[in-house]
């Protein structure tokens, strides 16, 4: 498969070490189950079979733990990456608002927009022609409050 992932980013959520741990634990599980089956089928005495049943059960738990660890690691890696990509949207929006000279508490909009926003809302970040006005002014212009930053709400 061709490497379509961006430069500097791992091609999958898991490292080679995590894959290796999973493989080892799954092999332990398969081996334990095979040993358990062989041991229990080799005798009809329940007292001897119980040990092998315990071994198979332990192997099943070990492989299950490997599965859980593997999935958790993948979930965590994706969470970190999402945080890296989208985590600082608010800071980016605030910086953009300050760069345009609009005060952080202003209610702003642009001529092409149908809603008005707080100046630090990410939806106005980078928009051209952003102007500040009162809420009544925006309403008179036919704009409605943004449903994300809630310019008409508290704080």
């Amino acid at each position: 498969m061709s490497a379509t992932h961006p430069v500097g980013v791992a091609p999958s959520p898991w490292t080679a070490g995590q894959r290796l741990v999973l493989a080892v634990l799954l092999v332990v599980g398969v081996g334990g189950l095979l040993a358990g089956y062989t041991g229990t089928s080799g005798t009809l005495r329940v007292g001897h079979q119980v040990v092998w049943i315990d071994l198979a059960g332990a192997a099943l738990l070990v492989s299950g733990a490997g599965v859980i660890l593997f999935l958790t690691a993948g979930r965590r890696a994706i969470g970190q990456r999402r945080l890296g990509l989208f985590g600082n949207v608010v800071e980016g929006g605030a910086a953009a608002a300050l760069a345009t000279g609009v005060a952080a508490g202003d209610l702003v909009s642009a001529p092409t927009m149908t809603k008005y926003h707080r100046a630090d809302c990410s939806f106005v970040a980078g928009k051209a022609g952003v102007v500040a006005a009162s809420a009544a002014g925006h309403e008179q212009a036919g704009r409605r409050p943004c449903g994300v930053c809630l310019p008409g709400g508290d704080a």
């Binding site: 189950l33 089956y37 089928s41 079979q49 092998w52 049943i53 099943l60 599965v67 999935l71 993948g74």
Partner: peptide
């Protein structure tokens, strides 16, 4: 009971193992 034990391992435990493996593959 002695004849049932192998089926517990080969049927029950292997079945659970395969179900877990299927869940792993799907979620991954």
């Amino acid at each position: 009971t002695g004849e049932q034990m192998p089926y517990i391992v080969s049927g029950g435990m292997v079945g659970l193992f395969l179900l877990g493996l299927g869940a792993l593959l799907w979620l991954s």
